[in-house]
Amino acid sequence: MSFENSLLSVRNLSIAFGGTQVTHNVSFDIMNGEIFAIMGESGSGKTVSAMAIPRLLPCPSAKIASGEIIFEGKNTLELKDIESIRGSRIGCVFQEPMQALNPVVSIGTQLLEAVRFMPKEKRETRIEELLTKSGFKDTKRIFKSYPHEMSGGMLQRIVICMALAPRPSLIIADEPTTAIDANLQIAIMDILRNLCLEEKVAVLFITHNAHLAASYANRIAVMYKGKIVECNTASEILNSPKHPYTRALLDVVPTKGKTLADLKPIPFGAEFDG
């Protein structure tokens, strides 16, 4: 695969908190319109790597030790005005929709804020279009509602609409369904994927869930202890994992026909030879 025309190119990114380096030379590329997953357990460095892209890491505790992030031809780490791309070119969907929304502002007002840079007459039609496409019927009522009146699944759909509203080229979705009831996770992921395909938006999908990564991503990078141990197409990762950690991680996923003895927990901090 050639990455000459990639939308996002992360090169040798190393991030440190205090004196501790938490990611080591992380490199990956995302092509236009592609769904790219970073899969790993908590603490593997997947969220930190993703949040460095729109510069959402806590400052000054997190330091970029080395590396560069080229997004649409610009190094985001050196941009003076990161606000010019954050939100408008790179949208974010976080794990907890309730915390991503302001509890005392109506949904409509919050959605309109996302399109504040659009011409006034186009704003409401854009929001209505997205709400309808994400499965809301009574958009007038949704506009007047407040976050506490809605379920977690509805709120996450609102957040997805909000992220897509300014027509970004990349969405970072950090565990977007982890806080959502399991049986609704597929429905939310379907909406995210279909909307992004339709709008030709690339997705950086952060997840610990191998099933979801395999079902929705074109390519998957597996992260362990701050390093990408393996990066390949979703079907290669799932059907013929090369790295021993990837194999161990897939083995511990409960699937039909496995017994408790088949699930071998990965010892904390275990070493795997690539």
Binding site: E41, V252, P254, L260
Partner: peptide
């Protein structure tokens, strides 16, 4: 185990 990583889920199930 719903909020846990698969490896930790396996630990808790054991």
């Amino acid at each position: 185990t719903s909020a846990l990583d698969v490896s930790v889920q396996a630990q808790i199930l054991h």
